[in-house]
Amino acid sequence: MPHISFHNKEITFKIVYFGPGWSGKTTNLVRIHARVEDDLRGDLVMLDTDQERTLFFDFLPMELGRIAGYAVRLNLYTVPGQIYYEASRRLILDGADGVVFVADSQPSRLDANLVSFSLLRENLESYGMDWSTFPIVLQYNKRDVEAPIAVGTLERDLGLNGITVIEAVAVEGRGVMETIAAVSCRIIEGFDL
């Protein structure tokens, strides 16, 4: 449910990048931050460890423009991917309007992707959301690795029918803008007052 403020004339949506550790969630935000014009976005806030792993979350606020006087804002968050940061992930998902699941295409990370998606499903359900109708975009990242996981594998193993799928190499910027556009449009489709 977006935050709607009549007084401030703004409508704010929350998008969370979810996925296993090292899948490229922060890289997506870094590329969006670099690509979007300065006046449309704020600073990228990163709360990471000495090893540059996300500790709590990364945060990128954006203002896309105005419609009938109302500012359209997107607040982008990442969650920490490591399995032991479950509490942080659950907190950050609270109030999300849409999720990008960033999967790691390396064959050795198949199980990590499946476990992470299961956690996403559990977390959404714990907030009373129906994950099967919730706006989720599946990004297969790291398509430049040798013998990447075939597109369709995760959808089949997780029973995801009709989910929007985008292939990406986030570190090069490939697929990053398509992904944020896709999840944003999914959210907007379901917008109501």
Partner: peptide, 22 residues
């Protein structure tokens, strides 16, 4: 003040314009 249909159309236009692929 705001029609949902107009908002959706306007927002999609903004999204497609700002998040245009390289």
């Amino acid at each position: 003040e705001l029609s949902v249909t107009d908002f959706r159309q306007g927002a999609v236009r903004l999204i497609n314009d700002i998040f245009r692929p390289d």
